[in-house]
Design a protein around this nucleic acid. Structure first.
Lengths: 192, 192
DNA sequence: AGATGTTAATTGAACGTTCATTCGGCCGCA
DNA sequence: TGCGGCCGAATGAACGTTCAATTAACATCT
């Protein structure tokens, strides 16, 4: 942090520090003062960019959600064969979480915290809906069983999260083959 | 709370209050004073039963884990057909979480918090291992694909959690049929 | 049974610390 | 010289924890 940063870069630095610290120490374990120190700014500066700690966390959620959405659907070719797109999307998501376990950890904390209420009162368009659209497409076009989107989506995301969590454990590393086995399981389960 | 309670009952009352409040307001959102008030005791009393707030939370985790384990394997008949036992276990677990969403919420918070480190440094025998044993049995006896237990377990628990989370949402209620569809998906995916 | 002593349980006010937030001033750039 | 971003010590509230005092529980003795 020894170079001049633009306003946007400084905001991003604060985001990244918050992400790291919260994933390590939890919401209540990371004071603003530590975030500031880690990001190389003064505590007061954070209040120049964010109205409160809560707003920082909610905005960090939006920021992370956007990044992960971009990564998951990067290079997504809507004209390719559905099964391939399914496998790619599933694996992209798992790999993102494995590469950035802080994001996974932060999301898990966020989703099971009172903060969600602040987000999901007015914001119905969320990351899961992007996935849901893709899954709905598969149902509509007859690649996937005719079951409620909630069921299909639960099967998809549930396995992603569970796989990624184990993939970040120090005791077990998934190989590329393991991932393909795993996505094979879920595909076998929901394909028509 | 207007009757005389034994020591064990009072401890349980504290557990239940903590569970409820933490699932509603999060770890940092529930002061000891509130737990005490909700449980009908003085703040000091909590420190008679638990050395610290951290110890209370860690013990609450053990307490809840035991209860859920009992509920899941209640009436479990080890001599029955494997597929039936699989379906029953999966559905039992989902139903427990749906009936006691505070437990699900607390577990999710706990697992993605620094508290886990206090538990899983020395304690390798955990709730998931009881499930894992059952799944390993299925692999050994040829009912389930010959894949790593981490993969199979991730598929099992991932779908349980994801299903239960949606089952507790106000926007969607799973029917008995939905649950059977869901466990059908995961069984189709991992069966040999 | 009743009195007495002993231990355990309970209380809630008080303490000390931590933390989110504020604010008066400083620095670099126009 | 003025201004806006930035700083970090100061503030005040909230919280975990302690503890001296009080009460209940129970065993022991007369």
């Amino acid at each position: 942090m020894n170079v001049q940063l633009t306003s946007a870069e400084k905001k991003q630095a604060i985001f990244e520090s918050t992400l790291r610290l919260i994933s390590d120490y939890g919401f209540h374990g990371t004071p603003i003062s530590q975030i500031a120190q880690h990001a190389g700014v003064a505590t007061g500066t954070i209040y120049h960019y964010f109205a409160s700690k809560d707003e920082l966390i909610v905005e960090l959620f939006r920021y992370s959600k956007q990044k992960i959405q971009d990564a998951t659907f990067r290079d997504h070719d809507a004209s390719a064969e559905y099964h391939n797109r399914f496998v790619t999307t599933w694996i992209n998501l798992v790999k993102y979480y494995v590469q950035y376990p802080q994001v996974l950890s932060f999301f898990e904390q966020f989703y099971s915290s009172p903060y969600v209420k602040e987000i999901f009162t007015d914001e119905t368009v969320c990351f899961q809906d992007e996935i849901s659209l893709f899954l709905k497409e598969g149902i509509r076009d007859g690649y996937i069983k005719q079951l409620d989107i909630n069921i299909i989506s639960a099967a998809f995301l549930g396995t992603v999260i569970a796989t990624a969590k184990r993939g970040t454990s120090q005791y077990f590393k998934f190989s590329e083959e393991d991932l393909e086995n795993m996505v094979g399981i879920i595909w076998d389960g929901i394909k028509k």
